[in-house]
Design a binder for these strands. Structure first.
Length: 723
DNA sequence: GACCTGCTGCGGAATG
C-alpha cells in the first residue's frame, strides 16, 4: 500500500484519508505504479464496482497536479458510452477533484449549453464525453481541436468491451487517431473493462501499432459461488388442461422472486411486455403490492428511471423484466437472482448479466435459466425435435462455466463508418485531399483493411452526382457536396449507428415510450405496453404520435430486430452436447427429458456419423456444425443455385427448386472452388447508416468482410460431404 | 432469430 499511496499527490492522498479507506485495492495499487512509473497504455479489467475508475484517475490526477505541463486544453479526457454513466462518473470524480481544485466537465446531449460554453472558453481539468459529442467537436470546432486538447495527457475509455469491434468502436478509434494527429503527439490510452475472454484483442483495439506493449491489470478471480438451475417448459399445449409455458414460467417467477430484487432477461421487448403483464396480473389477483416492472429501450426515460430507482431502493423489493438495457453500464446495486428466459445470443452477454448478482460479500450468484420448447406432434420439424433452444442454453452455460466468451471480429471493413469518417475529416478541415483523408483514416486510423483501390471506389460512390455527398474542387481538394453538407449540418449525423423510425405513445399527456412504425395500428385496437393495457384512441401520422387510454385487455406490439450471430464455438459445443451422454447436474426433470428426446432424434437422423439427412427426393437437412456467419455463407451459395434454404443453429433445411441440380451435385460444385455468386439469391445488404450511399459491389465487399466467409466454402463442404 | 447506444446551434421570449 505505502509505495503506491506515496506516489499520489497530496490532495489525492487527503481525499483517500477522508474516505476512510484503509487500503488501496490490488488493481488500484498496480495501476498507480504503472501509470506513475511508465508511459504505457493500460487496460484495467475488473467487475462493475471493482474500483476501476479510481485505479485510473487517482494517479492521473496526481500527475496533473504534480507535473504541470505546458500546452492548453483539458488535462484528462474520459469517454463513456452512456449519458447516465458520464453523469455518475462526473459526480464521483468531483469528490476527488474538489480537493485538487480541478474542474470536472460532463459533456453530452443533456448537459446545458452554458457549461459547454464556459468549458470551451477555458478548457482545463477532466472532460467526460460521449463518442458522439466528441465527433460533434471535430465537426463544429475542427480548427480548435489542438487548442482544446493540447495539454491532454491521457484518455480513459470506460466499458471498453462494449465498443470493441462495433461501428461505434471503430468511430471512437478513428477519433482518437485524429486527436493525436491534431495535437501532433501520442496520448496515453487507458481502457476500463469488465473481465472478458480475449484480452489480446482488447489490447490490439486500444493501440493497434503496439498492442504487445499495452499493460494489463486484471482483478484476481475471487468469483462468488454460483447456483444454477435450468428448467424446461413445453409450449403449444392446446388441450386446455395444463397452463401455457408462459403462464407456468410466470407463476414460477412469481413464487420464487417475490420479495427480493431480481433481473429477468426475457430476450425480446415483446416478451418483456408479455411477462410483465402476466406478473402484474398475478400480483393483482393475490391483492399484493406491485413489484414486477418492464424495462427496455422503447419505454420512456421516466418509467425506466422509476424502475432503476426502485431497484436501488432497499426498502422496495423489485424485479425488472428486461432486455439488455439492464445488462451494462449504470449501477443498480446487487440483485438476488438473474433469470434468463430462452437461450441467450452470446456467452459474453450471459456472463455480463450474471455479474449483476452475487456481488455482496458471502452472497452466491444465482442463475435461473428457463427453456421453452414446443410440444411434439408427428408433424413437428427437426428443429423442435432437436430442441435447439434448450441445447444452446446448455452449451452456453457450459462455456460460461469454463470462463470462455466470444472474441471480437476484427476483420470487418466497416465501409459505412468509413463514409461517415470521410465526411467528418472533410468537415473538420474545411476540405482535404484524397491522400490526406486516406492517410488519416486508413494508414494511421482504424480502416487498415481498406486498400487504396477500395478507398478510391468509396470516394467515387459518394462523389457520384446522384449521391452528392462529396465533390472535388479544381485543385483536387475534396469538399462536401450539397447532400453531404445537409447531412453533416444536422445533429443526427454524429452517431454512426442506424436508428429505426418510431411513433411516440402518449397517454393522458404523458409519454409512455416509442413504437416502431411497422406496427399496423388503428383506433380501437388494444395494446400491452409498459406493463399495462391500452386502447388506441388517435393516430397522428405526421407528428408520429399515438394517443392511448387505459383498457382491460391487449396484445403486445411487434418490435423488429436483426438476426443474432451465434459464434462457431457455441455451435460446436451444441453438437458435443447432443453427442455426449452426460446429464448436467443443474437440469431439472422436464428439461432432462427434453434433452433425452433431442439426443434420441439426433441419433435417429444419423448425424452422429454423417452430415446430410434426406427425406424424399427433394428435402434434406445439412449439419454444418459451424456458427451463423459460415452457415449463412453456405445458405447463400445454395440459394444462388436455386434451392430454398432455411437456416438454424448449425443446420440448414434445404429444399430443391424446380430447376435445381440434385444436392450432391450442387455441393460438389461448391467444393471444387468454382466461383459462386453469393449475392444472386437476392439478400439485402443495406443494414448500416451510410450503406445507402455505396455501390452494389462495395456493399457486397462490406458484407463479405463481416457477415460472410466466402473462402471457407470448399473446406466446409468437403467436411460435410466426407463424414 | 435480438438487443443497445447518441445528437448542435440558433432564434425568440421571458427574466433580473
Amino acid at each position: 500500500m505505502s509505495s503506491a499511496f506515496d506516489r499520489l499527490a497530496r490532495p489525492v492522498q487527503k481525499w483517500i484519508r477522508q474516505k476512510g479507506w484503509r487500503e488501496l485495492r490490488d488493481i488500484q495499487a498496480r495501476s498507480i505504479r504503472t501509470i506513475c512509473e511508465t508511459n504505457a497504455d493500460l487496460i484495467v479489467a475488473a467487475s462493475t464496482a471493482g474500483g476501476k475508475t479510481e485505479a485510473a484517475f487517482l494517479p492521473l490526477i496526481s500527475q496533473v497536479l504534480d507535473e504541470p505541463c505546458d500546452g492548453t486544453g483539458f488535462d484528462l479526457l474520459y469517454i463513456g458510452p452512456l449519458k447516465a454513466l458520464i453523469t455518475d462518473q462526473a459526480i464521483r470524480l468531483e469528490g476527488i477533484c474538489q480537493e485538487a481544485e480541478l474542474p470536472v466537465v460532463p459533456w453530452h446531449g443533456d448537459v446545458s449549453q452554458s457549461i459547454k460554453t464556459r468549458a470551451l472558453k477555458s478548457p482545463k481539468g477532466i472532460l467526460l464525453i460521449t463518442p458522439e459529442s466528441l465527433e460533434a467537436l471535430f465537426i463544429r470546432r475542427g480548427l480548435e481541436i489542438a487548442r482544446l486538447f493540447g495539454a491532454t495527457r491521457a484518455v480513459v475509455i470506460d466499458e471498453l468491451h462494449t465498443v470493441l469491434d462495433s461501428e461505434r468502436g471503430v468511430q471512437l478509434r478513428s477519433l482518437l487517431t485524429r486527436l493525436e494527429l491534431a495535437t501532433k503527439r501520442p496520448i496515453r490510452r487507458i481502457g476500463l473493462s469488465a473481465t472478458l475472454g480475449d484480452m489480446d484483442l482488447a489490447k490490439a483495439y486500444l493501440r493497434p501499432d503496439a498492442a504487445s506493449s499495452v499493460q494489463l491489470i486484471e482483478a484476481d478471480g475471487g468469483e462468488a459461488e454460483l447456483r444454477l438451475q435450468l428448467r424446461g417448459y413445453l409450449s403449444g399445449d392446446e388441450d386446455g388442461n395444463s397452463p401455457s409455458a408462459t403462464d407456468a414460467i410466470a407463476a414460477h417467477l412469481f413464487k420464487h422472486l417475490r420479495g427480493s430484487d431480481n433481473l429477468v432477461f426475457a430476450g425480446a421487448r415483446q416478451r418483456v411486455e408479455i411477462y410483465a403483464d402476466r406478473l402484474r396480473e398475478l400480483c393483482e389477483r393475490e391483492h399484493l403490492p406491485q413489484e414486477f416492472y418492464p424495462h427496455h429501450a422503447s419505454l420512456s426515460r421516466d418509467h425506466r428511471d422509476f424502475v432503476e430507482r426502485r431497484l436501488k431502493d432497499p426498502a422496495k423489493p423489485t424485479t425488472a423484466i428486461c432486455t439488455s438495457t439492464l445488462e451494462l453500464g449504470i449501477d443498480i446495486g446487487d440483485v438476488t437472482c438473474v433469470a434468463q428466459i430462452g437461450a441467450p445470443f452470446s456467452v459474453a452477454a450471459l456472463r455480463q448479466r450474471l455479474g449483476r448478482s452475487g456481488r455482496r460479500e458471502g452472497q452466491p450468484a444465482i442463475l435461473r435459466q428457463y427453456a421453452v420448447e414446443a410440444k411434439l406432434s408427428p408433424e413437428s420439424s427437426f428443429v423442435d425435435r432437436l430442441r435447439l433452444g434448450l441445447i444452446r442454453s446448455i452449451a452456453m452455460i457450459d462455456l460460461l462455466l469454463e470462463g470462455w466468451c466470444e472474441p471480437p471480429k476484427p476483420q470487418a471493413l466497416h465501409l459505412s463508418t468509413l463514409v461517415h469518417q470521410i465526411l467528418s475529416v472533410i468537415a473538420q478541415r474545411g476540405g482535404a485531399s484524397a491522400s490526406v483523408v486516406y492517410n488519416v483514416l486508413c494508414r494511421e486510423g482504424p480502416f487498415r483493411r481498406v486498400t487504396t483501390e477500395v478507398f478510391a471506389d468509396v470516394l467515387r460512390a459518394i462523389g457520384h452526382p446522384e449521391t452528392g455527398l462529396i465533390e472535388q474542387a479544381g485543385s483536387g481538394l475534396l469538399l462536401l457536396g450539397p447532400t453531404g453538407e445537409k447531412l453533416v449540418e444536422h445533429y443526427s449525423f454524429y452517431a454512426v449507428f442506424q436508428t429505426p423510425e418510431e411513433f411516440r405513445l402518449v397517454a393522458e399527456g404523458r409519454d409512455l415510450g416509442t413504437l416502431p412504425i411497422d406496427n399496423v395500428l388503428a383506433p380501437g385496437m388494444l395494446l400491452i405496453f409498459s406493463g399495462r393495457r391500452w386502447v388506441v384512441q388517435e393516430i397522428h401520422d405526421r407528428e408520429k404520435v399515438i394517443i392511448v387510454k387505459p383498457a382491460k385487455a391487449g396484445v403486445p406490439p411487434v418490435f423488429g430486430g436483426d438476426a443474432g450471430d451465434i459464434y462457431d464455438k457455441v455451435i460446436d459445443r451444441m453438437f458435443s452436447v447432443l453427442e455426449r451422454g452426460i446429464s448436467p447436474p443443474y437440469m431439472e426433470a422436464v428439461s432432462l427429458e427434453m434433452l433425452d428426446e433431442a439426443r434420441a432424434h439426433y441419433e435417429q437422423l444419423g448425424f452422429r456419423t454423417k452430415n446430410i439427412y434426406s427425406f424424399g427426393e427433394r428435402t434434406s437437412i445439412i449439419a454444418t456444425r459451424v456458427g451463423t456467419v459460415k452457415t449463412s455463407t453456405l445458405a447463400l451459395a445454395l440459394r444462388s443455385k436455386g434451392f430454398l434454404v432455411e437456416q438454424h443453429d448449425g443446420f440448414l433445411l434445404v429444399e430443391a427448386g424446380d430447376e435445381t441440380p440434385d444436392l450432391q451435385t450442387a455441393l460438389t460444385h461448391i467444393r471444387s472452388g468454382e466461383p459462386v455468386d453469393l449475392f444472386a439469391g437476392a439478400g439485402n445488404f443495406v443494414s448500416e447508416k451510410f450503406h445507402p450511399y455505396l455501390s452494389k459491389p462495395l456493399l457486397e465487399l462490406d458484407a463479405a468482410s463481416s457477415k460472410l466467409v466466402p473462402q471457407i466454402l470448399p473446406t466446409l463442404v468437403e467436411r460435410i460431404i466426407q463424414a
